[in-house]
Every structure is written in C-alpha cells, then in structure tokens.
Simulated scan of single mutants.
Amino acid sequence: MTKTVLYARVSTSEQTIDHQLTQAREAGFQINDEDVIADHGVSGVNTKLADREGGKRLLDPLTLRKGDTLVVRWVDRLGRNYADVTGNIRHFMKKGVIIKTVINKMAFDGATKDPMQKAGRDAMIGFMAAQAEAQAQATKEAQQAGIAFHRETSPEKFKGRKPSFDRDQLEEVRSKLEAGLGHSAIAKETGLNRNLVIRIARDPAKAEALLARWGM
C-alpha cells in the first residue's frame, strides 16, 4: 500500500509547519498527521537535507518506497542549495518515489523513458532548484544591505533591546549548563527568567554578540 508523506521545513519562528500542512490538504493531498516529517528552525541554505533531523528520517530507506508520494510546498523546502536539492530529487526518483509540489502543482518521477521528456523534466528540476538558491542569495544580500544602512543611520536602534543579563550572569549560566543543571534550576539560582536561560542555552553565541553590541 502506497502512502503520501509531507516534508515541511521552517527556518524562523514566524513560520509554522501547520500552515504548510493546511496548504497541502487544501490542494487535495490526503496526508495523515503521522505522515508529516518536519524540520523546525533549520536553514535550507546552510544545512543539507541529510544533516537535518527530519531530513534524515525522510531519507531513511524505510520511510519512502517505490510508488509513494513526497509532497513539499515547493522545492525550496527541501533546501536552497542547487546541488543538494537536485541530488535529493534524483535520489527519490531513482527509488520510484513521486515528488509533488503544492505550489504550481508540479510532479517529478523517474518513470518516463522518453529522452525528450527526461530532458524537460530535468531542466525544470534544475531551474526550480537554481531559483530557490538565487532567491536565498538575494534575500541575504538585501538583509546585509539593510543592516549596514541601519548601523550607519541608527546605531542605537541597531543594537536592539538592551539585554536583561550581564556578562557575569552569562558566564554563570554557561558554567551551570556545563555542570548539567536544568533550565529551571539555573533560572532559580541566577534569578533570570527561565525562557532567557533556554535562549542562552540554545544560542550562547547570540547572547555573547548581544552583550558585545552594548559594550557589556
């Protein structure tokens, strides 16, 4: 019995997996909740599909078999690296898996033997993967230009909100994390908000950079 699997990826907290699932179902795909594979807060530019937790599950030989369908909102959910995206799509097609997109309702599979159809299919895959990478690069350049502008024109605003912790507290949180203490225990001992402790634990480099921007 064949199945339909949705792979969803979000790279920011403003995006949601549920939105991608709803879009897929509204487009007519019958997807069970247990057949949704997702990666949260993962960049499609810097992290290859095989290096993501959800991606590893998706590429597991037991997840998708010949005749199954892999649904993605668009190919950029698989990634924004040309070589990685095209390589993975070919991998699934070779297995006999059909890849379908919610946007534009594209379908790719390896069933065709006609050389002209193969050429057209491969050209479309290459174009879509290249477009995904180009869009990511354009977004990155625009963000960098915006940051540079605000750094020059509004240096105080660029700093963002002043951190609610100082360097001593950051070092204390780090040392307690290394000692194996839980987030709640650290929050209680340091007097910091538990959510702040969690944010520091997840990205200590970001916390360090925030202090540096404020000269703390």
Rank of each mutant, 00 (worst) to 15 (best):
A129L: 06
K105G: 10
T47Y: 07
A24F: 07
F29L: 07
M128I: 11
V85A: 00
D84M: 00
P204D: 04
D60S: 14
V71Q: 03
R25N: 06
F165K: 04
T69M: 06
M1A: 11
L170H: 06
V71Y: 02
D51I: 04
A83W: 14
A201R: 08
L62T: 15
A130F: 06
I99G: 02
T139G: 08
I200T: 03
A111W: 12
E133Q: 13
D68M: 06
A185Y: 07
R65F: 11
L21N: 01
R80V: 05
I89A: 01
N104H: 14
I31P: 02
D60A: 11
E172G: 09
E171M: 13
A24Q: 02
D166W: 02
T153K: 15
S164M: 08
K176R: 15
K56L: 05
H150T: 14
L64G: 03
D109W: 04
G110E: 08
K159L: 00
R213K: 15
R121W: 12
A130R: 12
K140Y: 09
P204E: 02
L210P: 02
L177Y: 04
G28A: 03
Y82N: 14
Q131H: 12
L6P: 03
E208R: 05
I147T: 09
R151K: 15
L62F: 15
F158D: 06
R73C: 14
A38S: 10
R80A: 02
R77K: 10
A111K: 15
L192F: 04
I125Q: 12
L49H: 08
S11C: 00
T12Y: 09
A185G: 13
K140F: 08
K56H: 08
F165S: 04
L58V: 05
F29N: 03
M116K: 13
G44L: 01
R202T: 15
G215E: 06
S13P: 12
L6R: 12
K157E: 12
E178A: 12
Q169G: 05
L170Y: 03
G67H: 02
D39N: 02
G44N: 03
D68N: 07
V10F: 05
V45Y: 13
G191M: 01
R52C: 00
D35L: 10
A187L: 08
A212P: 09
R80I: 04
F92H: 03
S11M: 00
P155W: 09
Q144N: 09
T2K: 13
M93W: 01
K56P: 09
Q15S: 01
A148E: 08
A142T: 11
L196M: 11
A119G: 13
D122E: 12
K159R: 13
D166L: 00
R73M: 15
E152N: 08
D122Y: 07
A111D: 13
A209E: 12
F108L: 00
K100A: 11
I37F: 03
P115Y: 00
T22K: 15
A179S: 10
G160E: 07
V75S: 01
K95V: 07
A209D: 11
L211A: 07
T190D: 14
R25V: 08
V45T: 15
G54W: 00
V197M: 02
A8R: 01
K162V: 07
G120F: 14
G67K: 06
A142R: 13
A138M: 11
G44Q: 06
L70T: 00
I103S: 15
G28Q: 05
R80N: 03
